[in-house]
Design a protein around this nucleic acid. Structure first.
Lengths: 146, 146
DNA sequence: CATTATTGGTTATTTGATATAACTATTTTC
DNA sequence: GAAAATAGTTATATCAAATAACCAATAATG
């Protein structure tokens, strides 16, 4: 049924896109069961690793535009997962931290995500999986977020 | 300036997304100079490799929904790159082929895309680049387009 | 130190990609 | 020959991401 992809099936860009969609379909479904998007999950993770950081820093780190970050972080706050407290140093700024609930919740998300990652590694085999990570990291670092 | 990504920076899904965005930013800019999207380019490529195939087949092959395929293929037709001729076998169906202009144009796009791919390979080095392709292909084939 | 430029956060709005529902004409299946 | 499936289409909804403009506070500068 499927046609020949032609030159496309050796094309890094195309393969990256398809691989990303396949992996996200898998992980995304698990996150969706907890009413979370991949972006939501990434934000919680970064806040957990950098407690007290501000919205701009978190957004820039993840390549999210700060203007699009606002509704996302407000959702997390409304769900009681994130605390937005006025910064002591800079009166313009806001310190982001996870609540206790946020930390607990994130732990279960990490466990779930790890299960999905394990499935990917099992599918590829450990060697190919390891061989995949290094080049991906190199490419990922090319991104120059605004 | 950038914060710690925490567990994220070893996460396949996250790395795939960032790597894909980085590569697409590069290739996408080149395509955009010709008023083409990555999807446009993919469609022309598949039609070139499968002359006479119908919209549904091409769309399914690329994981594009057939309903979203319509405006795309109409743009290509309007630009004189693609020919939509009524199918002989099935009166519901349409045969897609590239025009001569379409073939010429696609050749220049291929050349440009190859230059971008070369830059990616140079950035990673040949060994890592090769090591990247195989697992990506395996993952990409997981996609089960409607 | 007074003015200017920059930064952190925000709102409102637009664009673009993708998904859903519904319909017609034809072909296939039973 | 009736019912089900398929090819193509239209119209519409949804959702992520980009753009423009703004305020308050801080940093830079002359």
């Amino acid at each position: 049924m499927a046609l020949d992809l032609g030159p496309l099936d050796g094309h890094v860009g195309y393969l990256l896109r398809r691989a990303q969609l396949a992996v996200f379909a898998d992980i995304g479904a698990g996150l969706a069961a907890h009413a979370m998007s991949p972006a939501d999950y990434a934000v919680l993770t970064v806040i957990d690793s950098n407690p007290g950081a501000g919205p701009s820093q978190v957004a820039e780190t993840l390549g999210i535009q700060k203007t699009n970050f606002v509704p996302l972080i407000r959702r997390m706050e409304a769900r009681g997962l994130v605390l937005r407290t006025p910064s002591a140093r800079d009166r313009r700024s806001v310190d982001l931290t996870l609540t206790e609930d946020g930390k607990t919740f994130l732990a279960t998300l990490h466990a779930m995500a790890q299960a999905h990652v394990d499935r990917v590694r099992d599918h590829l085999g450990p060697a190919e999986y390891e061989a995949l990570l290094a080049p991906l990291q190199r490419l990922a670092r090319l991104t120059r977020p605004a």
